[in-house]
């Protein structure tokens, strides 16, 4: 009702009138309420995402030990990262090698399990639920169990390799590739079932007629898999590749619990995120850690672009 009074009031001057009517107009109010509706998200986003992002860019220009003062050092942190920090580049290499070792077998295994689950076997529902269990188990508990499995003297794995297969005992945690394999196995164990379920959903959406038709044409099971199944579930494959890439770049808890803050004595499983964590929360060098975070951003960005290019290419070669 207020607005009606406003409208009836004679205008004091042309400029003021337009300003006032604009302020009071229905259109403006619609806009305003629209913004207010989305503002809870925007405010939370600004506080907990946007601000930290910008703040980390700002403090990456400082030398800042948490219990002390900040000193402005310009781009020195980045110079150090590029020219004199072998650990950082090692962590980048480790992240990618463990991503490769963890993802590729995992996706093949997932596809294999999915085709098994898709077949008509007894107690299918049980197995379908079963494969997702690793994914919902507490990560810390998983890591602790795997530490025992990969123990040097009393580990299950070494019992198998030395007592059953007759090889020498392996110190899984200490040696470079073995530690990486152990962490990759943890990743595989955790994510295979999840991916298998995605594949399973995709498999079940393939029309049965395609298989029937090809059977009549005399295609073998293998040919069917290669020329019908794989092309039909290509979107699911791309989806899982993208997801595993995101997960692989963020690999953190498994190496942390398996080998500690520094990713083992020779940094054998030090990943990029673990290095960031160690720098920030164990060494308390927040400026340097922020610089690492921005380098991470750039690396993951580049890798994602490459990934996008690849998946587009796969998608278009139908």
């Amino acid at each position: 009702m207020e607005s009606r009074i406003e409208q009836n009031r004679p205008a004091a001057g042309p400029g003021q009138a337009t300003a006032q009517s604009k302020w009071r107009s229905q259109k403006f109010r619609d806009h305003l309420s629209g913004y207010l509706y989305v503002s809870p998200f925007l405010i939370v986003f600004a506080l907990f995402t946007l601000f930290p992002v910008l703040w980390s860019m700002y403090i990456s220009l400082f030398s800042w030990k948490l219990m002390g003062s900040k000193t402005f050092i310009g781009l020195q942190n980045y110079v150090w990262l590029f020219t004199d920090d072998p650990l950082f580049w090692k962590s980048v290499g480790n992240t990618f090698s463990m991503w490769l070792m963890g993802t590729i077998p995992q996706l093949f295994l997932a596809l294999f399990i999915a085709t098994l689950l898709n077949a008509n076997l007894k107690g299918k529902r049980f197995f379908q639920v079963g494969v997702i269990v690793p994914n919902v188990t507490s990560l810390v508990a998983v890591a602790v169990v795997f530490i025992s499995i990969f123990g040097a003297n009393y580990g299950l794995m070494n019992y198998f390799t030395s007592e059953v297969l007759g090889f020498e005992k392996i110190n899984w945690q200490a040696s470079y590739w073995h530690a990486q394999i152990a962490v990759s196995v943890m990743v595989i164990w955790r994510w295979t079932g999840y991916n298998a379920l995605i594949y399973l959903a995709a498999l079940q959406s393939i029309p049965q007629e395609l298989y029937e038709a090809s059977t009549i044409d005399g295609a073998s099971k293998f040919k069917q898999f290669l020329y019908i199944t794989i092309p039909m579930i290509r979107p699911a494959i791309i989806f899982t590749i993208i997801l595993s890439t995101i997960g692989g770049m963020q690999l953190f808890v498994e190496p942390l619990i398996f080998a500690g803050n520094t990713g083992g004595q020779a940094n054998q499983v030090l990943t990029m995120v673990l290095y960031l964590y160690d720098t920030a929360f164990a060494k308390n060098s927040f400026g340097y850690a922020s610089a690492i975070a921005w380098m991470l951003f750039v690396i993951i960005m580049l890798f994602s672009l490459f990934n996008l290019y690849l998946t587009r290419k796969i998608n278009s070669t139908t």
Binding site: S63, W80, L87, N171, A174, Q265, A266, N267, K283, G287
Partner: peptide, 30 residues
Amino acid sequence: NALTEVERNGGDPEAEWQKAMDQIKRDLRR
């Protein structure tokens, strides 16, 4: 870490010591 590397993987103590000293300087300058 250097001592563990010597113990577990047969690293050369002198080389590992030097590596550790370099790393300490890197970690402290930040």
